[in-house]
Design a protein around this nucleic acid. Structure first.
Lengths: 117, 117
DNA sequence: TGATTGTATTACTGTCTAAGTATGAAGGCA
DNA sequence: TGCCTTCATACTTAGACAGTAATACAATCA
């Protein structure tokens, strides 16, 4: 087995951690069809502005989104389309897990199928 | 945009969260070449037994590993090979991010290249 | 039966963080 | 200049979680 060193493991863990909050997934989902400024994202996600700002800062720090200021507005966009490839794989995995655990066609599984592009 | 409902988002977030700790990534890495019991995993990861047990319980709960008792030993194994597909994509993403941030061939980037299968 | 091995669980501590509130900084406009 | 909009940054509170030590539990063996 070729082990990753601690630094690389930490980088990978940090990346996954950025994706491990429902609010941040909502934000990324809001950016799926193009970049938006903080106000638009706040409206779309229904979260507080300060909260959205903090999550965006974390996502930017993790390299998942890009940021560009235009006047007083700041636009954020998905940095890498591979992010959604990831989410699609996870949705598939989660759907299989849900299926294993409940052995039926649950609402969750139907929902997860929606984003498989 | 086809939004996921809260339940599906929570499932996906939980899945990512299970992968967001270096110790758990070490455990999964230890299982890359086949199932092992808790003692073996404890030895390979260098963590405490109680800690490993708790992480394994979390990974099992999240559906990432399978568990099977054989005598007094309990063997854990990767539940789905797609897990490593995920990690490979993330390693690729992280390598690009590291490259963007440091614009050089860092030790981290070289490490991350090792697991791309 | 009693001892040993392997694993899970519990209690505890310290750390981290999500969310909300309030405030501050920067740019645009009258 | 003064006001407004937009965003970021403390600060606080509450809850989650990683790690450790001690203990409980179950299967095996002497």
């Amino acid at each position: 087995m070729q082990a990753l060193d601690d630094s690389a493991l930490n980088h990978v863990a940090t990346y996954f951690r950025a994706l491990s909050e429902p609010t941040r997934l909502r934000i990324l989902n809001a950016l799926r069809d193009g970049g938006k400024n903080v106000s638009q994202i706040t409206a779309l996600t229904g979260c507080g502005q300060a909260n959205v700002s903090k999550h965006l800062a974390l996502l930017f720090e993790a390299g998942l989104v890009t940021r560009s200021a235009q006047g007083t507005a700041v636009f954020y966009a998905i940095a890498d389309s591979a992010t959604f490839e990831l989410c699609d794989i996870v949705c598939g995995n989660v759907a299989r897990i849900v299926e294993r655990q409940f052995s039926n066609t649950s609402a969750v599984k139907r929902q997860l199928g929606k984003v498989a592009r």
